[in-house]
Amino acid sequence: QNEKLANELKSLLDELNVNELATGSLNTYYKRTIKISGQKAMYALKSKDFKKMSEAKYQLQKIYNEIDEA
């Protein structure tokens, strides 16, 4: 289960640069939040902690959705 979550989180991290570029014309909230979420996700992957990875995955998905809707 950890392996599956780690792969999903890696996949979301692969999209980080594209989504970060998409924040160029948006409010600074999005820029700041996506950077923080990305850092948390990288830390969670290194720690291999299921709870941290779950939270990081949720945060990344949430900010990606917010950027898409903005």
Rank of each mutant, 00 (worst) to 15 (best):
I67C: 04
D14T: 08
D49T: 02
A22G: 04
E69F: 08
S37T: 11
L12F: 02
A70W: 09
L60C: 03
K40T: 07
Y30L: 10
Y30V: 04
K10S: 05
T33I: 13
A6L: 08
D14R: 12
L13F: 02
K10F: 04
K48D: 05
N7F: 12
N17S: 15
I67D: 00
S25F: 10
K46F: 07
Y30S: 04
K10R: 12
N7L: 12
T23W: 09
I36A: 09
L13Y: 02
M53K: 00
S11M: 13
A22C: 10
N27I: 05
L13N: 00
A41S: 02
Y58L: 11
E66F: 07
A56W: 03
T33P: 02
Q61I: 12
Q1K: 10
E69I: 11
L21S: 06
N2A: 13
R32S: 07
Q39S: 07
K57T: 05
G24W: 09
K52R: 10
Q59Y: 13
E66H: 04
G24C: 14
E15S: 11
E8M: 05
A6M: 11
Y58T: 09
L5W: 01
K35T: 07
Q1R: 13
N19L: 15
E3I: 09
M53D: 00
Q59M: 14
K35C: 12
E3M: 08
F50D: 04
A41E: 01
K48V: 03
S54I: 12
K51Q: 12
E20A: 13
T23V: 08
N2F: 15
A56H: 00
I36T: 06
T33D: 02
N2V: 15
S11H: 10
S47G: 04
Y30P: 02
G24E: 15
L9P: 01
S11G: 08
I36W: 12
Q1I: 14
Y43P: 01
A22D: 04
K51L: 11
Y64W: 06
D49E: 07
S47E: 08
Y29F: 05
E3R: 08
N17T: 13
K62S: 05
G24F: 07
A44L: 03
S25R: 11
R32V: 13
A6I: 12
N65A: 13
S54L: 14
T28Y: 13
N65V: 06
T23Y: 04
T23F: 06
I34F: 03
K52I: 08
L60P: 00
D49F: 02
S37Q: 14
L13K: 00
L26D: 03
E20W: 14
Q1T: 10
A6F: 13
K10V: 06
K31W: 09
A6C: 10
K40R: 12
N2W: 15
N17W: 15
L45A: 02
Q1L: 12
I63M: 03
L60K: 01
T23K: 05
N19W: 15
E3Y: 07
D14G: 07
E69Y: 11
Q61A: 07
L21P: 04
K4L: 11
I36R: 08
S11P: 00
N27A: 12
N17R: 14
I36E: 07
E8T: 04
S11L: 12
A44W: 01
L21F: 07
A22V: 08
K51I: 11
Y58I: 10
E20Q: 10
L12T: 00
K4P: 03
L16K: 02
F50E: 06
M53L: 03
K4C: 10
S47I: 10
Y43C: 13
A44H: 01
E15L: 15
N19T: 06
E20L: 15
Y30Q: 05
Y64P: 00
M42V: 10
N2D: 08
E69M: 13
